[in-house]
Amino acid sequence: MDDGRTCPACGSGLQPAGHPPGDRAVCPRCGRCWEAGGDGAVVDPLACPGCERRGTCESCPTWLVEERSRREVLADGQQVLIRPLLYGDRFELAAGFSDLSPRSRRHRFFAAPDELDPDELEYLTNLDYRDHFACAAVLEDGPVPKGVGVGRYLREEDDPTVAEVAVTVMDAYQRRGIGTLLTRMLGEVAVENGIRTFVSYVQWENAAAVELLAEEGSRVTPAEPGVARIEVRLPARVTEVPDSYLHRLIKAYVARVRAFGRRDGGDGSARDGGDGSARDGSSGGGSSGDGSRAGQVTPSERSSDRGRPRRTTRT
């Protein structure tokens, strides 16, 4: 696929998509498909970028997107979609990484180059969703869905009950609760996959991330100069959440996304395939948590779940 081609709709450079890449080119900005027979239609946000199937493909993460996608509302009223990261997100991930401030890049990688190289990008987006799981935070209220954060865990080789966690939120969106939401999803998925302990390495200077990850009962120890090692025990299993009402809401939401299919349809909030389309990916590396506890409460929780523990995982 020619990398040099531009999107006739918005002028952005087209990017190859799919897994393996090469049979489609999509515009990372407006999410349209132009190559290999594509007529500029918006790509189905929930279709597997590899096989184009959707919904129940067991070899693809699409089913996970449906099962896991979750709309949340931050304390400041901002709606945000938290969904698994997809392979097709890698271009936006790369772009997001470059957009991060040097400080945030440093917080994420401790000594970070200006951009991710293709190997790193491949490593960070070629997920198996069990041993390596990542999720993205996506804002859908702009003309193009915008990835603003990414969280991931990787199971450790020596001890399969332990995984390392890294969470990054774009600079302008830090300290609003997005990191908390990402971390929560990581915790839920990790528990289901038999992970009992999250470990993360965070620069002390990155106070927001230390605050986000170091909760009651966590163990914080000094690693090398400037770096804290934070160990958090996860609960043995996920119980309360998603509670029935929330679950129903997600189901309804997924159904709605399904319904609007390739053309626009859906309601205002999900136009243009905004619900976590493969292209709105997630933004990249950087760092830093956003430690505030904003955004934990979805409208559903607010209305119906008083008195129940809001959080199942302690991450």
Binding site: F109, F110, A111, E224
Partner: peptide
């Protein structure tokens, strides 16, 4: 590097 690609300076 850690699994999430953080550099371990030491």
């Amino acid at each position: 590097l850690t699994p999430t690609l953080k550099v371990r300076r030491a």
